[in-house]
Amino acid sequence: MSAQIPISTFKPYRGEKARLARAYDYLILVLALFLFIGSFHLHFALTVGDWDFWVDWKDRQWWPLVTPLIGITFPAAVQAVLWDKFRLPLGATLCVAALLLGTWVTRVFAYHYWNFFPINMVLPATMVPGALVLDTLLMLTNSLTITSIFGGGAFALLFYPTNWPIFGMFHQAVDYHNSQLSVADVFGFQYIRTGMPEYLRIIERGTLRTYGQYATPLSAFCSALLCSLMYPLWWKIGKLFADTRYLKRI
């Protein structure tokens, strides 16, 4: 640890020093933006993957379980750095915004222009409200424990209702050649994906069953519990990689 500067002798930067410090801020911000666009987007694509890519994968059981659980990782790690070292309560929002930027670029250029899928078939989900809650809760409580339990829980619980205004309309029923399908299912049937047969969809599978036909709340609360554990885990990972040794020499 560097020696703490006594409050009485602390002098804020002025003039050229202040300008240089501000230039450094912008440099780091731009680098961080591209870093998080690339790394978080890659992490998300490799783990959440098809659940976020396709409208006919966004089911009521696995999608609200898997997406927040993976989505809370980078926000927790970045918050650990930005809050602990700089008291900046924007780590989660920055990560989620960077992820969305990267996702939209990929959906438009790779999925639509390169592979010809209509963009409405590959609309991404958003986690912005959960991230705002995570940032504000951390700022107001300054507590890892409270943010883990309540912030992690809120991040998961808010995910499905946040996205229902976007995807609810894709769940209207269609009588498609004597089968009941949702509009989302019709997308999956009509717009041919060579490497994505219907049976590959991991939707409504496994022992995570409905209870009285209420599937989503069960998944969301399961995800909330897991997110409250995932959050401190990734906070610790963030702390592990947080290094301000160069700042101490300034």
């Binding site: 202040a18 410090a21 300034i250």
Partner: peptide, 8 residues
């Protein structure tokens, strides 16, 4: 001001 200033 962000990083250096806030860190200090």
């Amino acid at each position: 001001p962000l990083f250096i200033s806030r860190y200090r």
